[in-house]
């Protein structure tokens, strides 16, 4: 199956964010496999320099629907549907933001096309199909998924999975305005009665830390957690956790790492009592040095760690506290 055209669907806010540039870079490298084209679909204000910048990362054609601040999901998905219908790419990559995931799920339904969520890799494989990779259920493996009977292959990709890179000698690409008229009649179903800022719910950027401490199922006591937190301050680290740690109430959802949380790539990652389910591992594979501490010798995380420390967490903390 030849892939002639790969589309990247931009988010509602910025069409030239680092995140979108990562997706365009990946689309470019996939397109180079058989000289296909990269189409970037944007909705927002027409900003010439920003749009031209997208070509430096690999866009061949950019279509832009000139409408500022489209936050209405119906309208956005309607615009994207029309764009895809007109240009009919063989595949489309969406950001795995809340908004991107919703749009992708709607497009999947509209086009009856296969959609893979939260991909950690996309490859052309031997039978010339496109394979999407995501964490498999309840196991330390990655599933390879392909679309079937789909006119368009769809996927969402998490932030920070691919690295954006500028190409040299790129010619300027075509920028086309995409006319759109509202064809449906949808009243806003929601009235906002009250809106308050949540003071303790700030948006956290765990990617700014060079050291990440991560707690998992093996951390069972509040006292252990507190000791890890104290240690983190000493080394300027952030304390994050697995889904289990969030469920146990140790870690705020904003600090969850893994498939349903965030992806991190610190210089040093230290896993405290992390077993190493694939849903977590996919969030840390781009880390510099992975250190794992677990008393279970056979914990799957040791397969992915640079440094394996088989020990009880509290015992290790006792010793560290003596040293520092």
């Amino acid at each position: 199956m030849n892939i002639d055209k790969i589309a990247v669907i931009c988010d509602s806010e910025d069409y030239d964010s680092q995140y979108i540039l990562q997706l365009i870079t990946k689309a470019r490298s996939l397109a180079d496999y058989d000289n296909s084209k990269v189409l970037v679909c944007c909705v927002g204000p027409y900003h010439k320099e920003k749009l031209q910048n997208l070509s430096r990362f690999g866009a061949d054609t950019i279509i832009i629907c000139e409408r500022p601040n489209v936050t209405d999901v119906w309208m956005y998905s309607d615009i994207i549907s029309e764009m895809l219908r007109e240009h009919m790419p063989d595949m489309a990559i969406f950001p795995a933001s809340d908004f991107g995931k919703e749009i992708a799920a709607i497009i999947s339904t509209v086009f009856e096309a296969g959609l893979t969520a939260d991909c950690i890799d996309i490859k052309r494989n031997k039978n010339n199909e496109v394979s999407f990779y995501r964490a498999a259920l309840n196991d330390s493996v990655i599933a390879e998924i392909q679309c079937k009977d789909s006119a368009i292959r769809l996927c969402t990709v998490k932030k920070g999975i691919f690295v954006e890179s500028i190409l040299e000698d790129r010619e300027r690409c075509n920028i086309e305005r995409f006319p759109y008229e509202i064809t449906y009649n949808n009243k806003n179903p929601v009235q906002i009665l009250e809106s308050k800022k949540i003071s303790n719910n700030k948006i956290v950027d765990i990617n700014k830390y060079e050291i990440v401490f991560c707690v998992g199922r093996g951390v069972k006591k509040v006292s252990t957690y507190k000791r890890i937190e104290d240690l983190s301050k000493r080394f300027g680290a952030v304390v994050a956790g697995t889904r289990v740690a969030v469920e146990e109430g140790f870690i705020n959802k904003e600090y969850q790492i893994g498939q349903s949380g965030k992806s991190v790539s610190p210089k040093i990652y230290v896993g405290f009592g992390i077993s190493g389910a694939s849903q977590h591992i996919v969030g840390i594979i781009n880390s510099g040095i992975i250190v794992a501490i677990n008393k279970e010798e056979n914990a799957p995380i040791f397969q992915y760690a640079d440094c394996s420390i088989v020990a009880d967490i509290d015992d290790i903390l006792d010793e560290i506290e003596k040293i520092i």
Partner: peptide, 20 residues
Amino acid sequence: SKTKVIGVRNIVTKRERTIV
């Protein structure tokens, strides 16, 4: 269904596994 699972593989790792 419009997706099918082709198979599973281990998470690729190029790390030197040092056991302390």
